[in-house]
């Protein structure tokens, strides 16, 4: 007798939990033959705002962890994803990818996490400076996280695109609310299960599914969001311009494929210069 399989319910990921959208709305993802793959949550403005609240609460704690600790947690994400790589590949294939393409997307996502795991305790050393001021001061410049980052992941590559945008954000001590791919978001929500099992504190990564044009005006205008990054084309000028209201940092990654490099981390960093006087001895000099 054949057994009826159990289908997964895809929900949102906010504050380390999996709530349904408060709006009760859903939309469906179908494969290329029109068969239903999943009903996804159609996140609302309020879901986004709730996510920002938990992301803000989590930010100081995440930034306050040692860089080594953040590095291990990103590496842990890679470990957990590796362990589940077969199921992720199958989930991606359901949307129409070939097995080899799906396998490649999963391993690329894993390798991206390992890559940024390694950067956590190195980028500050690379991009900081000790500044030789023309006065008796010790003066240095280091980077610090910008804060809470709203992000729109690419429409293609629901898993890899999500990881490529999340990793540099959290690597640098920020927390994020990310809108996953609309049509390929199943693996993004499954990635939330990986996040939940990887010692990432609740609220550091929050993942929504829904409609870009509906959420981006609120992402851009929210006064407690410090930066907005868009890796998908289709952002309206009006939505984009709302970033000026709190002088939000804006990064447009939509115009080319997102690669991995440490400069991506700097899009969500602030440089701080610290000064302190250096005492100079004015006593006698040795005389020959």
């Amino acid at each position: 007798m054949s057994r009826l399989n159990i289908q997964k319910t895809y929900k949102l990921f906010i504050g380390g939990k999996f709530p349904r959208t408060e709006s009760g709305r859903s939309y469906s993802i179908e494969n290329d033959k029109g068969a239903l793959i999943a009903n996804m949550c159609h996140a609302s403005r309020k879901d986004f705002r709730n996510s920002v609240v938990v992301a803000r609460k989590a930010q100081a704690g995440w930034a306050g962890k040692t860089a080594f600790n953040r590095s291990q947690i990103l590496y842990r994400l890679a470990e957990m994803l590796e362990a589940r790589s077969a199921s992720f590949s199958e989930e991606i294939q359901l949307l129409g990818s070939s097995k080899s393409d799906a396998d490649k997307e999963v391993v690329d996502a894993i390798d991206t996490l390992v890559y940024y795991a390694g950067w956590c305790d190195k980028y500050t050393a690379l991009f900081s400076s000790v500044n030789p001021t023309a006065s008796a001061h010790f003066n240095f410049t280091v980077h610090e996280p910008t804060g809470v980052v709203a992000a729109v992941a690419p429409e293609q590559n629901g898993l890899l695109g999500l990881v490529q945008i999340i990793a540099p954000i959290i690597c640098g001590g920020n927390t994020t609310v990310v809108l996953a791919s609309n049509t390929m978001g199943t693996s993004a929500i499954s990635f939330a299960e990986v996040v939940q099992n990887s010692d990432v504190p609740g609220g550091v990564i929050n993942i929504l599914t829904g409609v870009m044009s509906e959420l981006t005006p609120h992402m851009a205008s929210h006064m407690d969001v410090n930066a907005l990054v868009i890796a998908r084309i289709g952002l309206s000028d009006e939505s984009r311009d709302a970033v000026i209201e709190n002088v939000k940092r804006f990064a447009d990654w939509s115009t080319s494929e997102v690669d991995s490099n440490p400069y991506r981390i700097l899009d969500f960093q602030e440089a701080k210069s610290t000064w302190h006087p250096v005492q100079t001895s004015t006593g006698g000099v040795s005389g020959y």
Binding site: S129, S135, T274, W275
Partner: peptide, 15 residues
């Protein structure tokens, strides 16, 4: 910019 035990210092080498 954060000044410790000083204030309003500027230098071309300091961002």
């Amino acid at each position: 910019v954060v000044w410790a035990n000083t204030f309003n210092k500027f230098d071309p080498t300091s961002p």
